[in-house]
């Protein structure tokens, strides 16, 4: 198993991956139906080793569906997906893939600590039990996202942004070579956004391959090497970051997320995204544990 030296940011050069010529992600003519509606209609996507690719597109363009298909959560109706040269299924080296789903704000039925959630990231493929020394690995992953001191907090006691960072730590704990993130900064508080950008910068410097769904490049703009834009389930752009439609790219544009802060959705005109205290839709207030 090849692992990256994500724990040593100062390391000179990361060891070259064994099969460096094989793309991390190779999707060919992927079609996905959810219920009766075709969500993806013939998507081709290749992500080579060490690339940082942003997946952009309007709401409903199929971004989330695509990444969920790529990591094997949703079945394809047609087409093929290969991760590290292996068709989706038991052959995929799952320990080399880390997935960060969109944050679900609803707390689970039973409280669980940040450390417990992160530890579940150590299980993959046929590994059903925690390896020896898992505590140290969990601590290391939480440290990477700046939450080492919150290991024993229940996840519902953490802010939305901190919860998101726990999910990132859960993906990082197995030291993956490919990180797939679905809107990691949507509705996330500022310190968490900054911590996230810092973490990503370090990981990319160490050679991490990244596919990230974004609404706007934001703090990640310096890292992103290629942008893929989806529209109505098809790739309409694959290359340099595109110019946003008038009124859609600026700081003042308010994106409406299905899971955004309720106030943002109901009264978008109430939130002006400009410099100053209100520069981000902030969800710090709905996440304080009762």
């Amino acid at each position: 198993m090849t692992t990256l030296a994500t724990d040593s940011p100062g390391a000179a050069t990361p060891p070259p991956p064994r099969d460096a010529a094989v793309p991390a992600i190779e999707a060919r003519d992927v079609h996905v139906r959810l219920g009766a509606s075709p969500v993806l209609r013939g998507v081709d996507l290749t992500v080579r080793r060490g690339e940082v690719v942003a997946l952009l597109g309007a709401n409903g363009s199929g971004k989330s569906t695509l990444v969920r298909t790529l990591v094997g959560v949703l079945p394809t109706t047609a087409g093929s997906v290969h991760l590290f040269g292996h068709a989706l299924g038991d052959d995929v080296p799952w320990s080399r893939v880390g997935y960060v789903p969109q944050r679900v704000s609803a707390a689970a039925g039973v409280p669980s600590t940040a450390a417990e959630v992160v530890a579940s990231g150590l299980l993959h493929g046929r590994r059903l039990r925690l390896p020896r020394g898992w505590r140290a690995q969990v601590h290391e992953a939480l440290e990477l996202v700046g939450l080492a001191d919150r290991a024993r907090y229940a996840t519902h006691q953490l802010s939305g942004g901190q919860q998101q960072r726990v999910l990132i730590a859960r993906a990082l704990v197995r030291k993956p070579e490919l990180l797939v993130l679905d809107e990691p900064v949507a509705g996330v508080d500022r310190p968490s956004q900054e911590a996230f950008a810092a973490t990503m910068t370090r990981l990319v410097a160490d050679g991490m391959t990244v596919l990230v769904v974004l609404h706007e490049l934001g703090e990640l703009a310096p890292l992103v090497q290629r942008c893929v834009v989806l529209r109505h389930g098809r790739v309409v752009h694959d290359g340099a970051p595109p110019t946003p439609q008038p009124g859609h790219g600026g700081e003042a544009h308010d994106h409406v997320h299905p899971h955004a802060h309720p106030r943002t959705v109901q009264h978008p005109e109430n939130v002006r995204l400009a410099e100053g205290p209100f520069d981000r839709p902030d969800d710090t207030e709905d996440e304080v544990a009762p």
Binding site: R68, D90, V97, P101, A108, S120, H124
Partner: peptide, 16 residues
Amino acid sequence: FSVSHDEEFAQSSGLP
């Protein structure tokens, strides 16, 4: 725990 906590993540980890 993994499968009860977040089935989607468990699936993306290739767990049975």
